[in-house]
Design a protein around this nucleic acid. Structure first.
Lengths: 218, 218
DNA sequence: ATTAATTTTTAGACAAGTCTAAAAATTAAT
DNA sequence: ATTAATTTTTAGACTTGTCTAAAAATTAAT
């Protein structure tokens, strides 16, 4: 069994590993969890004893298979709860994160299974992120950051890279929601801002925004 | 804001206060929380600093108004979650306690309000216990332990005094559920066991059972 | 290839919450 | 009203998770 703190570390490492092949540095984890590198060193030793990470001094950490499975089950819970909050309790997608952050630590396999069934076995959370199955497998679709599209390319909005309520509310304000078709009309070399077409409306989008929106090209 | 531990103490004191006018002893709290009296003394000092209990050395503790309200809000959450688990997620009434014990500590006023509405503003949990409203008021009905009924008295089963899964499963096995009409046919002086009538069936009930079943006389 | 800058780890400390064992206060018993 | 039994509190210690400051290792720079 893992403490809330241990679970948070596992989740952080899990997310950091997604785009990183080498070991994750204690500094990176510290930044992610808003804590100190020395605290991370301590915790990582504990997790190593519990065989959920492999840790070599100064070399960073990697999740073991057990670690990956454990982390995935936490992410699974987090995302299922997010779906529940949005679909059943009228939360908006920018309100769910903090609550899901608490709910993900509830320990009850039956609860997770029943919520999953109650929601009709969803595959994506409200931000477009895939929900790992019980074994920890995730159904990754090939998506690209909007910022990587070139003039005249288009696709469907399928996810966000930043789940902060500020960003999500901004998207709401601009009418950008998951499932909508987006076409790049123009890309400015100067600041990498984009002019896009979304539902017959023309929008101007900064690079920062485009860097946090995932598109499935087609 | 209160820690999970502090919340558990408040809840324990709240429940112990229900049938007790004087201050609650540290020993009683220790027993309820399965901890040591010395730990209780420490915690009770903290709670006193936070003005949720009044504590005089060797004199036990009492909840302040703030303490009562805080405790009631935890009990409210606990009972709402129990209803949710039973009504929406197919848990049986003997499975909900441990999960609700975790869920009650989730901090999100909106979540509680929405669950409440989602469930149609229930007034009782699956065990017949009243759900405090937002202000902490509870709708107490006048119920009596089955063990206090005399021959030929009857009423409706409205609650249990013991929520252990052992007891609840026993009731399930005997077909005793909330809402059913019960009549006392006979009461043995020797062991205070009862012969009762429930839905045209005649059952023999020990005093221990009768001491944990609430009846609304009529 | 040394020196300098950065990252990581260690060492020691602290807060929360708990425990055991001993001391103090209260309650019960004669 | 003392003494005995019980309850409650205190004192000191331990665990988990964190921190700061210093030491050690790694990486970058000349």
């Amino acid at each position: 069994m893992f403490s809330q703190s241990e679970e948070n570390y596992l989740k952080a490492i899990y997310h950091l590993e997604i785009d990183a092949d080498k070991g994750i540095s204690t500094n990176a984890i510290a930044k992610k969890l808003d804590t100190k590198a020395s605290s991370v060193t301590d915790m990582v030793k504990k997790l190593s004893d519990k065989e959920v990470v492999v840790y070599k001094k100064y070399k960073g950490v990697k999740l073991t298979n057990l670690g990956k499975k454990t982390a995935a089950s936490i992410v699974r819970k987090h995302r299922l709860w997010e779906v529940f909050l949005v679909e059943k309790l009228n939360f908006s997608w920018d309100e769910v994160h903090d609550v899901a952050e608490q709910l993900e630590h509830i320990k009850s396999p039956k609860l997770v299974d029943q919520i999953d069934a109650f929601l009709g076995f969803p595959i994506h959370d409200p931000h477009g992120d895939p929900i790992p199955d019980k074994e920890g497998n995730i159904n990754t679709i090939d998506k690209s950051l909007l910022s990587t599209l070139t003039k005249n390319e288009s696709g469907v909005c399928v996810g966000v890279n930043d789940s902060s309520s500020e960003f999500l509310q901004f998207l709401d304000k601009k009418g950008i929601t998951l499932g909508k078709q987006i076409t790049v009309l123009e890309k400015e070399n100067f600041d990498d801002s984009l002019s896009i077409l979304i539902e017959d409306r023309k929008l101007s989008i900064s690079n920062k925004i485009a860097n946090n929106l995932y598109i499935q090209k087609k």
